[in-house]
């Protein structure tokens, strides 16, 4: 799989749009992650060469931003919103209870997000991009178990 992706040809349009220049780095990283799921070392090396940047600068930038991931994602992703409105409605408790559950067995990666701005549904989780409103841990777990493995 990795060898097939060595060419990273799908990245060419975004590299061209930014003229293969350094200032396009974050846009290129965003697109690369969209295409390949995560920012692997070969991918970062390719991007550094294409933008004529030192490896350490590319790594430093990629590791700075929360949404860039350097490891492959799990099959499903469950983000607990920990914004203010969710916090005052019990998000910390929700996160702790989900952390204690065997989510890895379900192929679910647990994370948190600082406010997605739909606070009237607090507390909420975002599962594979869909928002689940007014949740509590047991109901979330039940629904996560129903996800395709």
């Amino acid at each position: 799989m990795a060898t097939l992706e060595q060419g990273f040809t799908e990245l060419e349009p975004v590299l061209q749009r930014h003229g293969h220049q350094a200032h396009g780095l974050i846009e290129v990283l965003n697109r690369a992650q969209q295409l390949y799921g995560h920012l692997s070392k070969p991918l970062l090396r390719h991007i550094a060469r294409q933008l004529h940047l030192p490896f350490s600068r590319v790594q430093g930038t990629a590791s700075f931003y929360h949404l860039f991931r350097l490891m492959p994602p799990a099959r499903h992703c469950c983000l607990v919103c920990t914004g203010t409105a969710c916090h005052v409605q019990g998000a910390a408790q929700l996160l702790a209870e989900l952390k204690a559950a065997p989510l890895a067995e379900l192929g679910v990666e647990l994370g948190s997000v600082r406010c997605i701005g739909t606070c009237s549904g607090a507390p909420l989780v975002v599962v594979d991009g869909a928002v689940w409103n007014h949740v509590e841990a047991q109901a979330v777990l039940k629904q996560l178990r129903e996800l395709e493995r």
Binding site: P54, S56, R57, Q59, S63, F64
Partner: peptide, 8 residues
């Protein structure tokens, strides 16, 4: 440019 700051 061997070095940079990583993470945050």
């Amino acid at each position: 440019h061997v070095w940079d700051v990583g993470w945050r």
